[in-house]
Simulated assay, not measured.
Amino acid sequence: MTRIVRFHQHGGPEVLRIEEVDLPPPGQDEVQIRVKALGLNRAEALLRAGSYIETPVLPSGLGLEAAGVIETIGEGVTGLSPGDAVSVIPPQSMVRWPAYGELVTFPAGLIVKHPPSLDWGTAAAIWMPYLTAYGALIEIAKLGGQDFVVITAASSSVGLAAIQIANRVGATAIAVTRTSAKRQALLDPGAAYVVVLEEEELAERLGQIAGPQGVRVVFDPIAGPIFEPLTASMSSGGILIEYGGLSREPTPFPLPAVLGKTLTLHGYLVHEITGNPEKLEGAKAFILQGLEDGTLRPIIDRTFPFDQIVEAHCYLESNEQFGKIVMTV
């Protein structure tokens, strides 16, 4: 028997339960991992609440990121062995492959031997933020050294990963945040500029920073009214990559800016990378090299023990964190 996290009804963090189940052995091309740490993601809160892109059959497990030690390998698995220290590429379905558990099963193709210099918490905090940011900025936007890139929700784990990736390729990262409380903390990991929404008019400030050329790339998980000032600040031929919808307000379509500047609006899921073996290999190489040379470094805000899953999800939804929330198992 092993302990896993499940929910039997949709709702707030309180619906999460730790239960004992009898986990079957790994099947063909699968591995089982004895989990040491888990990375938390907002997608997991959305699944739990019943508002995610995936609809689970209840009761359902959840979770996208884990790090630990391979305990058992299934038939057909090569290049991996029991005892290997590994981390997990987020699966396309966390309902099919849930990560919240003491012992979990994943396809061998999603398993990465992580650098031995990483501790368990850091290893569990890598793949979702860095794959998400890499796919948007490098694969889709082709971000380069002459570019200004606006990163909203910049204090999230994905936002911080995007700042680091922008710096790695020589681009100028402009972090957008709600209050001035996190200004210095955003400058420290490499934001060239920080725009505080409560204190500054967004379009005006972005115009001051980027000048007449405007901002070529916008990376946004918020949507809502922010769309209009963002597109107003963009350069001709610019691209706005939308990977979320955190705003509860309507999102106006900025038709004059889109037409006048021939802008591209790209709805984006990390599955564009994880579902494409060639792109995934390129992303893994970029990220692992960045971890090795120190240009990429996950920022962990707070760590919870496995038994405090409800408290960890409450904190996840507080929007107070700076970086990644991790659970130790």
Rank of each mutant, 00 (worst) to 15 (best):
A171D: 06
P56N: 00
I111T: 06
T105D: 12
L40E: 00
K113S: 13
A99T: 08
E278M: 10
I222F: 08
D119H: 03
R48M: 10
G260M: 08
E199S: 07
T231D: 03
L265S: 03
V35A: 07
S318L: 07
P221N: 02
I226H: 02
E228R: 13
T274E: 11
G170M: 04
A136W: 09
I300N: 05
D188E: 15
G260C: 03
F306S: 14
L23H: 09
G159I: 00
V218L: 01
L265D: 08
G290Q: 00
P277C: 03
Y268M: 06
E30V: 08
P25S: 13
A49Y: 04
F304E: 08
L202E: 07
L64K: 13
A66L: 13
T295A: 10
E44T: 02
E278V: 13
L118F: 11
Q321R: 10
M94N: 08
G224L: 09
Q208M: 06
R248I: 00
I70Q: 12
P298H: 15
T122D: 05
G237C: 02
V217Y: 15
V194R: 08
V310Y: 03
V195D: 00
S235M: 10
L160Q: 14
S180G: 13
P305Q: 00
M327Y: 02
V158R: 11
L110R: 09
P252E: 12
T177V: 07
L291W: 11
A185T: 10
L263S: 14
A43H: 10
A171Y: 02
